[in-house]
Simulated assay, not measured.
Amino acid sequence: MRDEDVLAAVRALAPVLRGRAAEAEELRRVPDASVAELTRTGFFRLLRPRRHGGLAADPAVFYAAVHELARACGSTAWAAAALGVHPWYVAQLDARAQDEVWDAADPGTDSALICSSHAPTGTVTPAAGGFRLSGRWHFSAGCDHAAWALLGGVVADADGTPVDMRTFLVPRSDYRVDDVWDTVGLRGTGSNDVVVDDAFVPAHRTLGYGPVTSLRCPGHDVNPEPVFRLPYAAVFTTAVSTVMVGIAEGAHDHHVARARAAAGRPHGRRLAEDPFAQVRLARAAAEIDAARLQLARNTAELYAAARAGREPSPALRVRARRDQALAAERAVTAVDLLRGNTAGGPLRGGDDVLGRAWRDLHTGRGQAANDVERALVLYGRSALGLDVDDPMV
């Protein structure tokens, strides 16, 4: 299977997923059939190492696939992007952890899907050979479909002073999913809570934020492909923003098609003939284009540096963070503009594409990666010659 074959298969599947968008909202999770069909496209292998049957693809291909999914169904794309990006993170871990995840999976399948909740909300206790982990982690998209979870935690010294932030890889047998996800938007992501009751996590299934941020991870010893030399902050946050932009583009395309065909007159004239509606459409399209172009530029430059064996410059890393957050903001702005063309229509519930996009984007705006002001501060500090020390860069 080639990268382009996966992308073509995802595009072919998109209309089916679009038809299930209302079902995903009703279920409050991605339908099992959608996950099975996505698995068959090879999507979940794009960022898996080749030594474990993956494609170790150009990240641009992964984001293009995520974008196609988001144009069809925002919830499905959000959960799929999360499950699809986590093989990249596991590829940073010790080879033993990678072997445990993928060698135990059913041959020829993608049964080892991985969810996450990186916010360090659990309790970590050092133990012989590893750590003991307990707690509750929130907002784990797609966790109902996962066999493993990546969970954040703070490690403290004997005096209780935090000394390290780590991510812990935990098998499904050591955690349970608590069905608490009931929201206005992104309802179909199944972003439920993951609960762990005193599980032992061996040291080789953990990774500190320091090695991840400095691009010095143990997985590099066995995975030479350049995609695994990218900064995790850029890989993950770009996946989030790509979903947001794809949702906005899908809503824009749908709105334009309906406006061309409709005879309605929400402001006293046919929508397609309303110059103010035309201006809003143009502005919305420009916001979407700007977001896509900046994300694509940064991804291309980051990947070029990795292929050349170079670390990306600090300036590129903070720019990627800046543009990622602004892309999410632009997606929200675009759909807000489109909403201005339809009076109160998008405020209604039901199976309405623009209304669902509006709800999904305003919910997704709350994701920590989309905190625009925090991202812009980092860029501003860097531009002014001040130190930047943040795990999101």
Rank of each mutant, 00 (worst) to 15 (best):
V194N: 03
N192L: 12
S117V: 08
V279P: 08
Q278D: 15
R176P: 13
H204L: 04
G122H: 04
G350M: 13
V10L: 09
V170Y: 03
R166K: 10
R205V: 01
H204Q: 06
T189G: 13
F236D: 07
T183E: 15
P49F: 00
W88H: 01
L93A: 06
N192C: 13
E249D: 15
V163A: 12
W88C: 01
L326R: 09
G185A: 11
A259C: 14
P211E: 00
D323T: 03
A156N: 04
G268F: 12
V388Y: 02
G153D: 06
L46I: 02
F168V: 07
L361T: 08
T238Q: 02
A315K: 11
M392E: 01
A239W: 08
T183M: 14
D387K: 05
A305T: 09
G264W: 13
A315L: 13
T76M: 08
H252N: 13
A60Y: 01
W137F: 12
G108P: 06
W148Y: 10
A327L: 11
W137M: 01
V243L: 12
V30I: 10
A146K: 04
L316D: 04
D164E: 15
A284P: 09
V335H: 07
R321W: 05
V194L: 08
D58V: 04
W148L: 04
D371W: 11
G364K: 03
A328C: 15
L113C: 11
A304P: 03
V16A: 08
T121N: 12
L38I: 05
C73T: 09
A261E: 15
V124D: 05
T109V: 03
I247S: 12
S382M: 03
V227I: 09
A158K: 07
R258Q: 14
A104S: 14
G380Y: 01
D289K: 07
G208D: 01
T167R: 11
R187V: 08
L46F: 06
D387H: 02
D110K: 10
F43A: 09
R260G: 15
P275T: 13
D103C: 12
F228A: 00
L338Q: 09
G19F: 00
F131D: 01
S313F: 05
S117E: 04
A72D: 03
R48Y: 00
A203Y: 00
V61P: 05
P202S: 07
E4G: 01
A251D: 12
A146I: 05
D159K: 06
G344L: 15
R216E: 11
F276E: 14
Y175S: 12
V154K: 10
V35E: 01
D390M: 00
R270P: 03
G349K: 13
R28H: 10
A296F: 00
A257R: 15
A36D: 06
G84Q: 09
A343N: 14
